[in-house]
Design a protein around this nucleic acid. Sequence first.
DNA 1: CGTCGCCTTAGACGATGTCCAGAATTGAAA
DNA 2: TTTCAATTCTGGACATCGTCTAAGGCGACG
Lengths: 135, 135
Amino acid sequence: MLVPKHKTDETLRDHGIQPSAQRVAVADYVLYTKEHPSADLVWNRVRDNFPWISRATVYNTLNLFVEKGLLRTLDLADNAVVFDPKMDKHHHFVDEEDGSIHDVPWEKVQVCNIEGLRGYVVHDYQVVMHGVKKK
Amino acid sequence: MLVPKHKTDETLRDHGIQPSAQRVAVADYVLYTKEHPSADLVWNRVRDNFPWISRATVYNTLNLFVEKGLLRTLDLADNAVVFDPKMDKHHHFVDEEDGSIHDVPWEKVQVCNIEGLRGYVVHDYQVVMHGVKKK
DNA sequence: CGTCGCCTTAGACGATGTCCAGAATTGAAA
DNA sequence: TTTCAATTCTGGACATCGTCTAAGGCGACG
């Protein structure tokens, strides 16, 4: 990219993260994708533009981003944690055929009586749906 | 156990599963626990009563039970699929402190407008909550 | 220019889950 | 009961995911 699409440096600094070439490369992919990628998919994607980056760095960077509030982890799929750059509240739909994950806007589904649960303090919640896409 | 607590043979046969000593041992634990165990925890628990059972058998048996509708898998926790013997609908609460999973009765929480989602055919859904237990 | 501290790297490691080939067990039939 | 085929079980190899560590590199700052 001759002209950077995003002001990634600033975004990182705003979240208390010292930018580096590797961190910017990871951020430029993972903060703007809709793929809900696993850590190893992030590694593969980033290596397209940054072939010498190490796997450990990608894992470290992703965990740092989660810690600093740039990403969330989702535990929805089989056998791999998946990262989600959308930090605003939304629900998720999991395609049973190909395992793909889709965002469902928060307003589309309403949940009632969450507050009334005895014994639990709920910090956040979401509806997880499984099914297939309409043809 | 001199007198079996459960008619596990019948349960297995009802679901089209040929009973065997190993399968009954796995079923006697996993179908009646509230632990939401991972596969390796099932292996450890079953070995208390059946020390010579192999790890592969436990994995095969659990997958068979899922295929035949005796168990469900949950993808809620970090890095391990967890099994849930309750086949009736319910929601889940994940304790952020210790990762433990608790069942939330279906009626306690209501979800609206699931049917109105464009583009998706929802086969099932649940509310997943994260938080802490009240002291 | 030198030092210090943070960042990156490669590989080892442990945990999870699958697969395979051979052994053991089972059920059915004679 | 004996035989035989089919199913089940076993142990180990293998692949994947994620973490950790030790060493080296690099940048910020004096």
